[in-house]
Design a protein around this nucleic acid. Structure first.
Lengths: 205, 205
DNA sequence: ACCCCAAATTGCGTGGACGCAAATTTGCGG
DNA sequence: CCGCAAATTTGCGTCCACGCAATTTGGGGT
């Protein structure tokens, strides 16, 4: 239901995934080739051998279709990496390390040019890329006792730090290292993570 | 350019503000009366004595028009309250106090029902309400030395905590106190604010 | 092998967003 | 008081998103 889903499943499901992937890939390819606003919805649908209406059953905007193709793999890796964090790890170290590891890899030039070609596209790209709130919250939850708010708040804080880093990097003309930006954006949250590691010394209750 | 603007200015500008306000107010009134999806863009434009095209010069969605009317006053108050924070205050205390003060007041029933009547509307409402990143960053900036990332990261963390609190409160059927939710959502960020007050003991550099 | 139902696809119709260029208004300097 | 340049409004055309209802399709159960 979310961005990602894999595993084996019924044939029906598999076909659906294929259609989705085909649409997404078509959208991306066409956008790379002709530029975002020379791509009609009809073109995407045609390239994926479905009706335009069906395209809209899968995606609610061209931007979304494109960005799913651009971000799915990354999101998958992030999920796996986060799942690998255990209760033995200290969040203050594990989370930044994991995030920098997964998101430090810089997108290729073609991607950068494409997403920078339209503000809406860039917004959607970053948005899709960093949409890992839930996974993050799951990792954090076991350390906050019964407080169900804190994990979501911290998770949101982190994904937003991530978002800021990505946006700055994309917007920057001078090439800064993405990993540096990530470090800089995560650093201000260290104290909050530190507090989680040493169970609720600062928060209320 | 942003959500808010006031002050005296040229007659031209004043008229523009009036038009904007008229459209926004019309959108809100019509939505309250007939429900969101019984309101056509043409109705809003007609009620404000402008062409439909002009409506779209001011707002890019009915949701936006409505929510500006619902949130402007609050955002104004937030700006003023934030401006009142001085270097003598400790962020760890001043920010939560200010935010709870401004945002703790619960919206009236009519508003809650309206924004809950459509997911897109609720999203836009909360979004518009908590759009104070910039002001927050300005308040924080003086305390982070040359680090221009930290203020934005912390500001984003706070607005997101705020967002989570508002969303939870709106979604909750059982009436919890909004102020409690706000406290709960801000608490996990205390350590980060604390660190800012005691100049960069935790961040890198 | 066949039937049946649920899920997926499709077409159609409505309404919205917005680029563009023409028309109108506004404020300012002569 | 006038006219002009800039800003604003407006109409039009295009494309997009999506609700709805009809149609097709795929895969279990017998």
């Amino acid at each position: 239901m979310s961005t990602i889903d894999d595993e084996e499943a019924g044939l029906r499901t598999r076909k659906k995934l294929e259609t989705r992937a085909a649409l997404s890939a078509a959208a991306l390819r066409l956008a790379q080739e002709h530029g975002l606003d020379n791509v009609r919805v009809d073109d995407i649908a045609a390239a994926a051998n479905v009706s335009p209406r069906t395209y809209n059953n899968y995606f609610s905007s061209r931007e979304q279709a494109i960005c799913v193709a651009l971000a799915t793999e990354r999101t998958l890796r992030a999920g796996a990496a986060l799942r690998a964090i255990t209760m033995d790890d200290r969040l203050e170290q594990a989370l930044p390390r994991t995030i920098i590891d997964v998101y430090g890899e810089e997108p290729d030039t073609a991607t950068v040019e494409l997403v920078n070609s339209a503000p809406a596209l860039r917004r959607e790209y970053v948005q899709t890329l960093v949409a890992i709130d839930n996974r993050l919250a799951e990792v954090i939850a076991p350390r906050t006792g019964s407080d169900s708010l804190a994990p979501r708040v911290i998770a949101a804080a982190i994904t937003n730090a991530l978002r800021i880093a990505m946006e700055d990097w994309l917007a920057a003309e001078t090439s800064v290292a993405l990993t540096d930006l990530l470090s800089g954006c995560l650093a201000p949250l260290f104290p909050a993570l530190h507090a989680l590691d040493h169970n609720l010394p600062k928060g209320r209750r």
